[in-house]
Design a protein around this nucleic acid. Structure first.
Lengths: 174, 174
DNA sequence: TTTGTGAGTGATTCATCAATCACAAAATTT
DNA sequence: AAATTTTGTGATTGATGAATCACTCACAAA
């Protein structure tokens, strides 16, 4: 069990991550400054480096949180939804996340093209996990053509992201 | 008709844009320096600013080139392909562009999340144009459910981009 | 009461870049 | 061949931002 001090420290850490997600999403990771993140988190700029060795490590932590949120939500849905409605409910769960955690999605989109190896690896593993979760759920639910269904599910999710990022709702019409 | 001098200047301009597309795609727009672009184009760094008032204006020009390339290719396909094979040939045309002009696609992906208003506007108009071109082609070809077909076509294109950017070919399987 | 430690900050450093300036060499025009 | 315009560069500048350093302060245990 965690000691009180460790808990407090972990909270502080999470506050910084949350601030970073917002600031990175609003301003763009490279333009965002650690000063902005610190202000948002209500601490001094150098103090960030007590928790994260580099700005990039902070980005990595933020990405991990954002992928974890999606994985958790999907697992929850899969455990409680009959396979006949599975796809529809998964879509709704994703839309909920997009509205409640816009910044996390915007950050993931940014990270798709960040060339740092460590970021790329984190993104690959995030996408791979989500894909595996969805594919296994379709397979276990006896859905026809699970591989193709999974592919289209993810494709629609990506279009959904872009429609949100560019503020073009017409892309999702029908 | 253009004078020789104007042509030479336009060539120079395009050389800079081409260099910028590569450098921006490789390094990321914000981290890429105008010095890197200049080196790649074989000119001095200050000379870039004879053609583009700011780095951002250079990015805008690069985006315009990249969207234009897709629009031209699609129009070409549409003008020469029977509607029965239209979607398949469009997909192939897009895949060709992705392989021959990887950097342009990576740049567009970056620009999806760049918060500068002028960039956002350019991206919206690029996406809107492509969507309109594809939708009208499906409509004129008498394809069933053209709006939904267009949406899925674009969604698959976006997934294709991500599969390329993250180097995850398994996302496009089937 | 002194010793020790976790939490936190102000000031500074060192490097990096976009953008400007002042100038030079070609090319064109007159 | 003189004047002018176009093409181009080296040197500099003014900001900026990540990361480090040298501290202070609260508080707890011995």
């Amino acid at each position: 069990m965690m000691a009180k001090r460790e808990t407090a420290s972990a909270n502080r850490r999470m506050e910084i991550i949350s601030a970073a997600i917002e600031v990175f999403a609003e301003t763009g990771y490279y333009r965002a400054t650690t000063m902005q993140v610190a202000k948002r988190a209500g601490i001094s700029q150098p103090y960030i480096f007590r928790f994260f060795a580099t700005k990039e490590e902070l980005l990595l932590a933020a990405l991990e949180v954002s992928w974890q949120r999606i994985a958790d939500a999907f697992r929850q849905v899969i455990a409680t939804t009959p396979s006949s409605q599975l796809e529809q409910v998964l879509i709704e769960a994703y839309e909920d996340i997009m509205h409640a955690n816009r910044s996390e999605i915007l950050l993931q989109m940014q990270a798709q093209t960040i060339p740092e190896e460590s970021i790329r690896v984190a993104m690959q593993s995030g996408v791979r996990d989500i894909r595996r979760i969805v594919l296994e759920a379709f397979e276990n639910g006896g859905v026809a053509n699970p591989v193709e269904k999974t592919k289209l599910f993810i494709a629609k999710g990506m279009l959904c992201n872009i429609s949100m990022a560019l503020d073009m709702p017409e892309l999702m019409g029908e």
